[in-house]
Amino acid sequence: MKKKISFSGKGNSTSVGGAPINRFLPSWQAKAVGPFILLDQAGPIKVVGKKTGGTGPHPHRGIATLTYSIKGEVEHFDSLGNRSLVSSGGVQWMNSGNGIVHDERSGASGEFSQKEIYAFQFWINLPSKIKEEKPEYLPLQAKDIPEKQLAEDAGSIRVLVGDYQELTSKIPTYTEQFLFHIKINPGKKFSMDFPQKIEVATVLPTDSAIINTESFNAGELVAFDKEAGEVEIENLSDLAIDILLFGGENYTEPIVSQGPFVMNSEAGIALAYKDFNEGKYGEIDYSSKR
């Protein structure tokens, strides 16, 4: 039995660090899908010039950030001394834990006459006990992302978070969650069954598709009910299409968010600001080497 579609919709246009983005989550229809509480899409856009912008140094607490660079480069700096450049197909993952300052920049390390930026950022809510632990950081290049071809030449799947068949991502998880990048060849289908109470959504970043027999356009997020069932995605076009499929178990603890902090109470938010203002998250040393 196919899962019922609970809602669909376009993202909201906004900007981060002066760069235009399309924000799918949160929205008036949903504050989260499983533990995923924010989803931004940047590009695909061509950028002309030597360097492109970044977010600038800013704090986080209580979430994990995951930046997936489909095309282009993303450079990460943080107050723990981490610095890394991830190229097309790679992921920057950071558990902000009990507080960290970081900065992400596109093309910050080199000079580019022209390049394309196409990336997604997710915020993943952390269980309360993990919010109290020290931050962690993990960069993954494209070769580090588990990937396989689908049966019957249907396409391919990349496992960014979680598990799919024999593939397991290196990204740490603290609850049941998954994030897949699926490419579906012309005239082919992909389907997957989900158990009860697992929240599921798919994003059509640049292509239209048939999802559970209904037509959806490029730029839409499609979310499903919490009943057990199948999600089927069909490509009726003449070109391969890209899909992001993500979700997980419902986050059951209280959520209080303000700016870059996502905690479980107003007191937790107040403490996050207090610790940041007292300098407990540290500062970024941009002179450090990768």
Rank of each mutant, 00 (worst) to 15 (best):
E227G: 15
Q114Y: 13
A142C: 14
G155V: 09
I210P: 13
T213P: 05
S208G: 10
S257N: 13
E266C: 07
L244N: 04
G49L: 09
I210Y: 05
G219H: 03
D193G: 10
K226A: 11
S87K: 11
Y174S: 03
F180S: 01
D275E: 12
V222S: 08
H60F: 07
G99L: 06
D103P: 09
F112E: 09
K188C: 02
R23L: 00
V200I: 13
N277D: 10
E227D: 15
V203W: 03
E166D: 13
A267C: 08
L150W: 13
I117Y: 14
S265A: 01
I241H: 12
P186M: 01
I37C: 10
R290I: 15
S109C: 05
K131V: 00
S84T: 05
N185R: 00
K134A: 12
L271W: 06
I37D: 01
P195A: 09
L25N: 01
G11C: 01
G229T: 02
D163V: 11
G89T: 02
S169E: 04
H181W: 09
A240Y: 04
D153T: 02
Q196P: 01
E176Y: 10
K131A: 03
R23P: 00
L271M: 13
A142S: 15
Y174R: 11
P146R: 06
I182Q: 00
Y273W: 12
K197H: 14
V256N: 06
S128M: 13
I184A: 02
A228S: 13
S84M: 06
Q29T: 00
S169V: 03
Y174I: 05
G54C: 14
T55D: 06
Y68Q: 01
S191V: 03
K3A: 08
W123D: 03
K274T: 09
G248N: 10
A30I: 01
S191M: 09
S191P: 03
S265W: 07
E133N: 12
I45Y: 11
K3F: 08
E133W: 11
V222F: 07
V86M: 02
A19R: 14
D78N: 07
A270Q: 11
L138S: 03
